[in-house]
Design a protein around this nucleic acid. Sequence first.
DNA 1: TTCAAAAAAGGACATTTGTCTCGACTAAAT
DNA 2: ATTTAGTCGAGACAAATGTCCTTTTTTGAA
Lengths: 212, 212
Amino acid sequence: MLRTNLTFLSFIERFCTENKEADMTLKSFKAGYKFIEQGEKISNIYIIKDGISKCFISEENGKDFIIEFLGKGEVVGELEALKKITCLCNVAAISDVTAYVIPHHLFLSLINKNSEFTTLLLQELSTRIIQTSTRASFQQLYTLEYALLKLLKLQADEHISISKEDMAAYLGISVRSFNRSLKQIIIKGDFNTSEFKNTLQAAHMKKLLSNL
Amino acid sequence: MLRTNLTFLSFIERFCTENKEADMTLKSFKAGYKFIEQGEKISNIYIIKDGISKCFISEENGKDFIIEFLGKGEVVGELEALKKITCLCNVAAISDVTAYVIPHHLFLSLINKNSEFTTLLLQELSTRIIQTSTRASFQQLYTLEYALLKLLKLQADEHISISKEDMAAYLGISVRSFNRSLKQIIIKGDFNTSEFKNTLQAAHMKKLLSNL
DNA sequence: TTCAAAAAAGGACATTTGTCTCGACTAAAT
DNA sequence: ATTTAGTCGAGACAAATGTCCTTTTTTGAA
């Protein structure tokens, strides 16, 4: 659920130091700041150096759907650059975020001139398709409780914690349903059973649950 | 819902005629034949020349989720080639299908040597991410009836018809729910109202509904 | 044409999820 | 300490969806 791409980040940082004259800058955003707005035209791509963002679609009926949480090395705005479209999603910082800002023209010329970069980009896009597809399938075909349990586990694994509202938006459900399922999980003690392989995970999970 | 990529197909056909010595073949599959099996290792990619296929994930609970219907110019197996993984999905022919078969090594060398091809591939992957993401959001956040109506409209637009089971699998619901919503739509006469702009569409829609 | 088997449709009930609302708790202001 | 506004959780009910099983329709063979 929290995507990262350290290889991609290394490449960018290396490129940055080796091409100091290139038109790349580093920007910081406070937690909560929405730095990309759905429907707007942008002329830069962003590569997250630090912090966590959420990428979400706001539907016309007022509901939000979180496509993915983005961490180190994830890129944003590249679809817009490649396909010359307005922003597909909103992107907002969840924690404080710093990101490399790269103008579209530089991004596009990198693709043309640097095959290492192109390969990394192809890898990134592939990963995204795989994750988006498998998640869509999973969330449509399994019960909410199962999906929620999996989501909590992922947070335990990655030692992060996401707000209740964001988790609900990620699962595509109301906060009410989220609370209900959460209670079921706690009552049943599902998080104590078989699926947790190590006690560290279980401990982090308890902490997570006590904060919700 | 039915993806096509005619630019991609043109490129392949041109490449094929210009490089007769290259290791590319044309294969045909009868309607219903599952030519890619989830979890298996493959060493070719397929580019659909003609016909319609469905690409679907079979979950462990026995349910299927249709990721997308694929028409002319759509490529299959490229994620597996790029990321060296076993097949993510099943792919089955819905109508009779003919497809170009290209070995992984040729596909990968095309990426390295032909920047036009790489650009087309980047476009294709981008489109896929966009479509998968917007669909996931839409299906999670809107009512079934709304999603179904949209699905029927798409079929009317594209002059194709998909079986009931496949539509249900695409929407991630049971056939029972599908039938219920369908009835609602017919009773309400939704397909006759505002959203249908031209009578050709409306006519095709009536034909579709009478076959369901 | 008739009948039996198979497939599809739909009714009934259970479960899940959403919406609306009220009450409990929190925190800040007086 | 009291009040008040705001937030959060959950009860109650409604709507949506799945499962199971009966009914209806279709198909194909005699």
